[in-house]
């Protein structure tokens, strides 16, 4: 889960899933992002099929808005190490992400765990509705390297990146 808009969009996407099929659930939120943790709590308590367990784990933010690039590298490495511990322990079958900075480290770890034959997680990236013509930086990383499937929400973007999946507007 990521800040503001990303979280809102993710909550909307998750609310359409049948949680009985996706259980247990682990939510990664940035440590300073109380809003997202709260939204997760709301989603879980209001969801129609609240079967199974969920937990919310906070990780360091890989990049705060306006943070300098040098300190970004440090905090990025820090959150990647945290993700290594979490994902090694949790071994998810499916990773869903929609593009906040927080979502890059876990996807890198998922790739690592796959290369090491420890766990093969399916990574699905859903680009934000905001992106009509261009992919975000995270989006480019996801589409080119990290995600098994990347979903975009506008035909213009799908035409530019034919390797993506277009399912219409999702939110």
């Amino acid at each position: 889960m990521g800040s503001g808009g990303h979280t809102g969009e993710m909550v909307r996407l998750l609310s359409t899933l049948d949680f009985r099929h996706f259980s247990p659930r682990l939510y990664l939120v940035a440590r300073t992002d109380d809003m997202s943790a709260k939204r997760v709590q709301q989603l879980e308590s209001s969801h129609i099929s609240t079967a199974g367990l969920f937990q919310t784990v906070s990780i360091s933010r890989s990049r705060e808005v306006h943070q300098s690039w040098i300190t970004t590298i440090v905090s990025f490495l820090q959150s990647t190490l945290e993700c290594l511990r979490i994902l090694f322990y949790y071994q998810p079958d499916l990773i869903l992400c929609n593009g906040p900075g927080t979502c890059v480290p876990p996807c890198i770890i998922a790739l690592l765990l796959r290369v090491l034959w420890i766990k093969r997680s399916t990574v699905i990236f859903i680009e934000s509705i905001c992106r009509v013509n261009t992919l975000s930086l995270t989006g480019k990383l996801m589409v080119c390297f990290l995600a098994d499937r990347s979903i975009v929400q506008w035909p213009e973007l799908h035409a530019k990146y034919p390797q993506t999946v277009f399912l219409g507007r999702l939110v």
């Binding site: 996407l13 359409t16 899933l17 049948d18 099929h21 079958d93 499916l94 869903l96 399916t122 699905i124 859903i126 499937r149 979903i151 999946v165 399912l167 219409g168 507007r169 999702l170 939110v171």
Partner: peptide, 17 residues
């Protein structure tokens, strides 16, 4: 705004998984 394709993601992921 036309209605969104609400169940498309769920159907897609369930099939994929």
């Amino acid at each position: 705004l036309p209605i969104n394709n609400q169940m498309a993601l769920s159907n897609y992921i369930e099939k994929l998984m």
